[in-house]
């Protein structure tokens, strides 16, 4: 990798006022890889590990606050998360490997970069890595690329599993920056690539994710995280769906759906969620919801399979959530 300076700020304030071209280091499972591959070339790396921020605390409103530096493994295994937010625990456990989850953090998960082959290869043009050079993924080997939220400039998929569950749960991201604190709904945190694909999210210079708030609402057993990938473990999603339903007397009161693997960000369509309200589960309803979720999807050369698979994954996941039989992440049978 290229040379860089390194610091370990003692306070959040100090960290926020780091020099220009600073990258913040948490678990390092993504940033270090990217620096070795010459994709990320930070002049300065500020290591956040001295800042605490690894607690998971119950909130007065009954929700949970997840520290940005809590590891994915600790988060998934935390009794309050496993008990009240099994959808989140399931999505975390569907991602990466135990070794990576032991190191990777919640804040880092939000800020991980795409796995686009062309982004990862500095020899290839890529607007996300090198603005203005063009998008090699368009017309290239793009089986893993997005079909929703794409632009001429970029079709890179946002790879997280955890964020898909956070989007279904309508979590809030808490930020601290040089200009103070602010909170952003998770669904607004990641950006569509548009003309500026190098900006993955709404973070401003110097801003740091400090925690993630989960609202008190819970879906009881009516949730699932269903992930389809190229092998049964340790692969990024081709299509995934995080679903939570509030069901009373056989009627869906409201539902939350987020998709992974298909979008340039965790994919949510409020109008599709609204279709569920006040209706009993049915094939035609779920087909309509899937259709609405995927409206506007545009496959490129290699990724039409995502368009075929996505409605089936959505419908199966909706059935799993309706039945209260969430997908297991250890038993690979999909019921």
């Amino acid at each position: 990798m290229r040379r860089f300076s390194y610091s370990r700020p003692a306070t959040l304030d100090e960290a926020c006022h780091s020099a220009e071209h600073t990258r913040f280091l948490a678990g390092g499972t993504n940033l270090i890889d990217l620096m070795k591959s010459d994709v990320e070339r930070p002049a300065h790396v500020a290591d956040l590990k001295a800042l605490g921020m690894h607690h998971i605390d119950e909130q007065p409103d009954g929700g949970l606050r997840l520290g940005a530096l809590a590891t994915n493994a600790d988060t998934a295994a935390h009794p309050l998360v496993a008990d009240r937010y099994p959808l989140l625990a399931s999505a975390i456990l569907a991602g990466a490997s135990p070794q990576i989850r032991n190191v990777a953090t919640n804040g880092g998960n939000l800020n991980q970069r795409t796995r686009c082959h062309y982004f990862y290869d500095p020899d290839m043009p890529c607007n996300k890595r090198s603005p203005g050079t063009g998008c090699s993924a368009r017309g290239g080997r793009n089986r893993i690329m997005a079909i929703l939220g794409t632009s001429d400039a970029c079709i890179a998929t946002f790879p997280s599993d955890m964020c898909v569950a956070l989007a279904a749960l309508k979590a809030t991201v808490n930020l601290t920056g040089p200009e103070g604190e602010r909170s952003v709904p998770i669904r607004d945190y990641h950006r569509l690539p548009g003309e500026t694909p190098w900006r993955d999210n709404i973070l401003r210079p110097g801003e740091i994710v400090t925690s993630i708030d989960l609202p008190p609402a819970s879906f009881g057993p009516h949730h699932t995280y269903l992930k389809i990938r190229d092998r049964l473990s340790f692969a990024f999603a081709i299509v995934s769906a995080a679903i939570g339903l509030q069901i009373e007397d056989g009627i869906i009161r409201h539902g939350r759906i987020a998709l992974g693997g298909v979008g340039t960000k965790p994919w949510c369509v409020p109008a599709a969620e609204a279709l569920l309200e006040g209706k009993p589960p049915s094939h035609s309803l779920f087909r309509d919801v899937a259709e609405r979720l995927l409206q506007g999807a545009m496959p490129d050369r290699d990724n039409a399979a995502k368009l075929r698979l996505a409605p089936r994954v959505i419908e199966r996941a909706l059935w799993q959530a309706s039945a209260g039989t969430p997908q297991s992440q250890t038993d690979k049978t999909i019921r």
Partner: peptide, 24 residues
Amino acid sequence: LMDERVGRFMNHNFAEYHIPAHAD
């Protein structure tokens, strides 16, 4: 995965060249 436009195998790492995992 060959990108024939440049003649390079693009999935040149273990994240994207999938050998079976234990679960498989």
